[in-house]
Design a protein around this nucleic acid. Sequence first.
DNA 1: ATGAAAGCGCTAACAG
DNA 2: CTGTTAGCGCTTTCAT
Lengths: 335, 335
Amino acid sequence: MKEKKRITLAEIAKKAGVSKSTVSFILNGKAEALRISETTRKKVLAIVEEYNYRPSIHARSLKSKRSYTIGLVIPDLTNLGFASIAKELEKHCREDGLQLLIACSEDDQSLEKKVVTHLVERQVDALIVGSAMTNDQFYIKLTNQLPVIQLDRQIGNSSLPLVCSDACNATADVVTKLISNTRQECYFFGGQLELSPSKQRLDGYKLGLKRASLILRPGWIKHADYQPQSGYKMMDECIKELGRPPYSLFTASYTILEGVLRYLRDHQLLDFDIRIATFDDYHILDCLPIDIDSVAQDCTSLAYTAYTITKNLLDSKETSQTQFTIPAKICWRSR
Amino acid sequence: MKEKKRITLAEIAKKAGVSKSTVSFILNGKAEALRISETTRKKVLAIVEEYNYRPSIHARSLKSKRSYTIGLVIPDLTNLGFASIAKELEKHCREDGLQLLIACSEDDQSLEKKVVTHLVERQVDALIVGSAMTNDQFYIKLTNQLPVIQLDRQIGNSSLPLVCSDACNATADVVTKLISNTRQECYFFGGQLELSPSKQRLDGYKLGLKRASLILRPGWIKHADYQPQSGYKMMDECIKELGRPPYSLFTASYTILEGVLRYLRDHQLLDFDIRIATFDDYHILDCLPIDIDSVAQDCTSLAYTAYTITKNLLDSKETSQTQFTIPAKICWRSR
DNA sequence: ATGAAAGCGCTAACAG
DNA sequence: CTGTTAGCGCTTTCAT
């Protein structure tokens, strides 16, 4: 590996017959502010072009105290929603010459602290987090070093900048529809209640019941985590309690739904007349024997909004609003 | 944002009453090589600890010509297989104090070049690519700057280091089983033939036919790309040709399978007695009315192997073998 | 309108 | 065994 040494600013300056600062100014768009002659500018740019010069990001970072990177911490890259968001953010960053650093927390608070610390040591200029924390104190402390933006999940009722979906209303709509089919029973299988999206989905469910004038019965709401196995187990419990599958059911995530479906399949209940709706949309829902309405988050918009806030904060543009709610879409499939 | 200035090497050295180099050596594990006294070492480490000193990665990079980052280029982060690999790689990197930089190419060759160029400008120490190229010339050129490792896809028959699944054998097994159920017909729906995994899957299919002593009929093999719509379309064509769904079918990816399933659903054919097997494993396959055998790549092992090769190349440990084939697993579901 | 020069924080060769 | 010192490539203030 013969390190093909890249050309440096100094060499460009020499070739152009000007000083390093001149080149630097031109490259950083400070040419007119300093009234550098058009001639010099053109000449320098030509040489830069010719030698395909690229400034060293590290030298620049060292000097300017910025790393031109943004950290993204999410629970899990294999979760389609977070992966979509990551992909969008990466694109926006790249288009602006930034680099996105992605790290996963596995929804483990201590691992989350660890990966965040790593990113901070890497001098990320800003941090976007889908946090598993229940307290924003850790992030508040970071706040005097860099902007921290909450994505998809609110930590407690933290006042840090936030972008998340309006899960409540869409969930309520879907649940109301679920009930409207003359079913006087509707279960809810959810994940960890400590996570803000869980609360919202539950609130939406309750609102849906209310709108359908259905009174919540004890036992209808089950909570575990977002693993498929948990969905399986909740279904098992539920059936043990009822002696049959519930007439209708809202699952608070696709993963929980998977567990439920697997249960139904394992027990040959896919034909049973059960109505299901779920949070999260996946293409495969179009292919199932059961028609499942779903709430789809607008990942593109979540990512775009989070990115915009981050940029504004980095440029320390004063933004009055820092908490954003993105409407969720509903994919209707039920008749 | 009052930039809480972090403490520097120089300050640590002063506090410890030693020189910068001493501290640097101690921190870089070169203490014993230089026989630095245990006393000094302890003292320095104590101070480092006390002030929670962290070296500036940028200063270090500037000096040492390494960025302590590895670039990963994949077609799409929302593809579960690639996301799993990315997640594993990120973990390995983090544990070694490296940072993984992830970028998506969207399977677009010119975008791929662009993102690679970005990563190279960021001075990544190595590059792991799931490439959409058909010619390795672009990467060969990079090779004199940094190690390039092919992941999951081989570019042409490039001799660059490579880690990929043994798709052929597992596919053959699954196809043989598919046919064994006394069906004398077996279709294949695949993606872009230019991509090496496509070829392998096709080879596996042919091998499977041969093992089952079934002669390939013209028209059985269809190729488009890996989009669900393509699966839908291929199914449509197929049914138009046959006047009924095929008796058995191998889909070369989960996405193609989705398209097929959607077609079947849209046309109320889910009950038709069709046998399907697919490449890629997803939990949801356990929940479908059709029992679909699937070939599952071992992402953990793919990632681990790729990472190990990369590390060896970075430490320029001579490794004789640079091309690795990871066995794929089969998830049997059919009776 | 342009240049000189002082670092940013670290590594490593060289000198003691 | 430890200290001195010269950069790495860039930004930016201050001169000219």
